[in-house]
Design a protein around this nucleic acid. Sequence first.
DNA 1: AGATGTCCCTGGAAGC
DNA 2: TGCTTCCAGGGACATC
Length: 271
Amino acid sequence: MPELPEVEVTRRSFAARIAGARVLDVRMGKPLRWPLGVEPTRLVGRTVTDVGRRGKYLLLRLDAGLLLIHLGMSGRLTFGQNLLPPGEHDHFEMRTTQGVLRLRDPRRFGAVVWAEGEDDGAVRKLLGGLGVEPLGPDFDPEAFWQALRHRRASIKQVLLAGDVVVGVGNIYASEALFVARIRPTVSACRLSRARVARLHAAIRTVLETALHWGGSTLRDFASAEGHSGYFQLEAKVYDRAGQPCRVCATPIRAVRQGQRSTFYCPVCQRY
DNA sequence: AGATGTCCCTGGAAGC
DNA sequence: TGCTTCCAGGGACATC
């Protein structure tokens, strides 16, 4: 589920509804990626003030302290009144006066971490090294080029690292590079200003389009192929190894970069 | 500092 | 059918 658009859609789905809610109790299931970092009962009685987002982290702010929530690979967050009893994969549950916030995460790569404030050690450790928000005002072509010009790793891996720009996961990295017509394996520092400007625009377009369509991932759409009118969000390259490029019909190629799969069109995407 | 490999965990799909 | 192997959208951490 979760790259930046999915996390942002999740945030919007409950931010207004949970604001002002008082915590009634907190229940933990199996351990997530990191311990909560606070006795769950200490959250009882606090009030949720708002829900923010930084990269793929949700920031649930309380009148004192905040919870950093990450969905990992398989996490789903729900907030509602009449939820079923917790299942075996529901590992965090916070009952409030306005509904129950529940994290279901079968793979348990996700996390819920307590921080006393915005400059807490946990916040600095998890959020301190993050790059700029791709949909925010600080993401601009010139600064992007400046940040890339000293990086010798492949552009795909630099995008995934998240220390230049956040929120671009494995699927959207392949898709954005296709839109920008850039070979994923090219070294980041070899990209010209003009090509970086194209990539900048492509990242925004890809993420904004996904956000506009409700944050459903390209993979979800691909598996739902034929069902709805959402085919404009079909992956152009992701998971399409061997299938014809939608632009030039050349078979899409798959390679591995840093233990992750990358897909590209060898004709449309140049070095 | 930056690049690279490893690991956390479960479930579904593919291969034999 | 049943077993094994591989793969999955993330990212912190150790190591070089």
